[in-house]
């Protein structure tokens, strides 16, 4: 177990380094002078020079890179340009809201995907399978920025059941979580179906049936337990993608998370803050993938020897 985790970690570290380097170099992509872009037109040259010095952009690039890396090791992501707050502080204060939203979306998608995926596999080729197949393609094709406003129209404006935006309690989590988790629910349903189709053809399932077990026991206690193993990996990968999807969902619902902070920082051209947000989202994504890989090896020890 431990060698596997260590090997996996060793594979992850270079990726982390590349991601950090990419995020560092983003500010040098800005056409023209990033400081002039941040300050807007009509700023004096001395002011631009002062800010450039403050951000360290007047130093040689290698030195900037070294200072950036050293800062990261200390947990220092630089200063926000607009509100003079440490980038790490801004991000930390918004992070829990995004995690809450991502977990809500994952729970929702599993609540949909397991029953529908199993039903689709068990009733393969029947009407139920075709309807679920159609709905899951629809779910995949429905972007969160179309789904979100439509759900607000229906559940908040027409029916008055749920709040339009903001964060506070379970009722405010439902619409954003469903919006963010909709596509994930569709993908996971297809995964569960495919995985269950493979499992229910296996010998142990035939044995269980031959023993005279009830069909529900065969499907849920025997086949589903094995069928969910590959789903975990996909779920891990997709949970990471939720962090990116959260940028849009949080914008729609004014959810005070990392995604909204990223967009606000982009609009304000607060480049240090944008870099910090991107870095934290990408690193979270890598971490989630790592954890899901390790989890996968716990539930299915065979892959450790690959």
């Amino acid at each position: 177990m431990i060698p596997f985790v260590l090997r996996r970690l060793a594979l992850t570290l270079p990726i982390v380094w590349i991601v950090v380097t990419l995020v560092f170099s983003l500010i040098h992509l800005v056409p023209g002078d990033p400081v002039a872009q941040m300050l807007g037109e009509g700023t004096s040259v001395t002011e631009i020079e002062r800010i450039r010095h403050e951000l360290g952009l007047d130093r040689p690039i290698f030195e900037q890179y070294r200072a950036y890396m050293m800062g990261l090791l200390r947990g220092d992501l630089g200063m926000s340009f607009r509100n003079q707050e440490a980038v790490a502080t801004s991000i930390l204060s918004r992070y829990p809201a995004t995690i809450e939203l991502a977990l809500g979306a994952t729970v929702f998608s599993l609540m949909v995907a397991i029953p529908f995926g199993v039903m689709s596999a068990v009733r393969r080729g029947k009407a139920a399978d075709r309807v679920i197949g159609f709905l899951s393609l629809l779910g995949l094709s429905l972007p969160n920025f179309a789904l979100g406003p439509m759900m607000i129209l229906l559940f908040s404006i027409a029916l008055g059941l749920l709040p339009v935006s903001g964060r506070g309690g379970l009722s405010s989590l439902i619409l954003p979580a469903v919006t963010l988790g909709g596509a994930l629910a569709a993908i996971t349903t297809r995964m569960v179906r495919a995985s269950m189709l493979e499992e229910i053809q296996r010998d142990y399932v035939r044995t269980a049936r031959a023993k005279g077990l009830k069909e529900s026991v065969v499907v849920f206690k025997h086949a589903l337990r094995n069928g969910l193993i590959p789903v975990i990996t996909i779920l891990g990968l997709q949970m990471g993608a939720l962090l990116a999807g959260a940028i849009i969902t949080e914008t729609i619902f004014s959810w005070p998370g990392l995604g909204r902070l990223t967009i606000q920082a982009i609009y304000a051209r607060d480049y240090p803050l944008v870099q910090g947000c991107l870095l934290v989202i990408a690193l979270s994504y890598i971490l989630i993938n790592l954890v899901s890989d390790v989890l996968y090896s716990v539930v299915d020890p065979r892959i450790r020897y690959d």
Binding site: I18, V19, V23, L29, G240, A241, A244, V274, L278, Y285
Partner: peptide, 24 residues
């Protein structure tokens, strides 16, 4: 190992958002 894996280390649309945010 290097090019593809590091591009995949960013969740899809995030990298596009990052690029457009800085390129304009």
């Amino acid at each position: 190992a290097v090019v593809i894996n590091s591009l995949l280390a960013f969740p899809g649309i995030l990298l596009a958002i990052a690029l457009v945010a800085f390129l304009g």
